[in-house]
Design a protein around this nucleic acid. Structure first.
Lengths: 112, 112
DNA sequence: TGTATAATTCAATAGTTCTTGTATTATTGA
DNA sequence: TCAATAATACAAGAACTATTGAATTATACA
């Protein structure tokens, strides 16, 4: 993960419909959902949903696989972990005594 | 944390200089740094730095406190924790067996 | 093969955010 | 009070992102 990738991922999430899609897929887990079902759930047109799904895919946060005439999208777990880790990398310069319990929990995300 | 707040926070982070500032303040810990030092470090003009610091502040990710003629900015730990928690809330519908080790770690961020 | 469904691409417009320079406010110390 | 430093506010144009509808591609199945 580098700065440019992180900015791309954060920008992808910084949109109400995309954020709803992402959280939905996080909740859904590895199986994911077809694009049409996602579009319905967030009340987006097929065009809009496709645009937003592509943004999230490009950002490495989800990925789509064709399944017959459907494309199923699912969360990219490793991409998501890398983003969270990048945000809190080197927090409090590794001195947990500065950070308190909250930071300790957040830091556990950093490790693979 | 609601959707609108989360989008605001993610948009605040989705900019190279602001992301650099945020990570710098995460590394720095509770004491934070004066605005001028931050501006130098990210090679931004005073105006640009002020604009970006205000965005991060508005998003609840950092906060500034005046200290003589300086304003020191520091990370808002609780704001950051809430954002990370919002992203991974209800992951795999609470069934860790779907998620694997990575998700279990990420989930630890959710708890207060 | 032809029709229906799922999804994506394209192009134009509308809307937002970023950048830059200048002006202003706040604080300190001579 | 005056000069210097730190920071913020404002305004205009540039750059980027989102939205919409129409057209296109991919797949299934009668």
């Amino acid at each position: 993960m580098n700065e440019t990738q992180a900015v791309t991922s954060l920008a992808a999430l910084a949109h109400p419909q995309r954020l709803r899609i992402f959280r939905m897929l996080v909740a859904e887990g590895p199986n994911g959902l077809p694009a049409s079902e996602i579009a319905d759930a967030v009340e987006a047109s097929a065009t809009a949903a496709s645009f937003h799904l592509k943004e999230l895919d490009r950002a490495g946060l989800i990925f789509g696989t064709r399944d017959g005439r459907f494309v199923r999208y699912a969360v990219n777990i490793e991409g998501m972990r890398q983003l969270l880790a990048y945000l809190v990398d080197d927090c409090c310069r590794g001195q947990p005594e500065l950070c308190g319990a909250t930071f300790k929990k957040i830091r556990s995300v950093c490790s693979k």
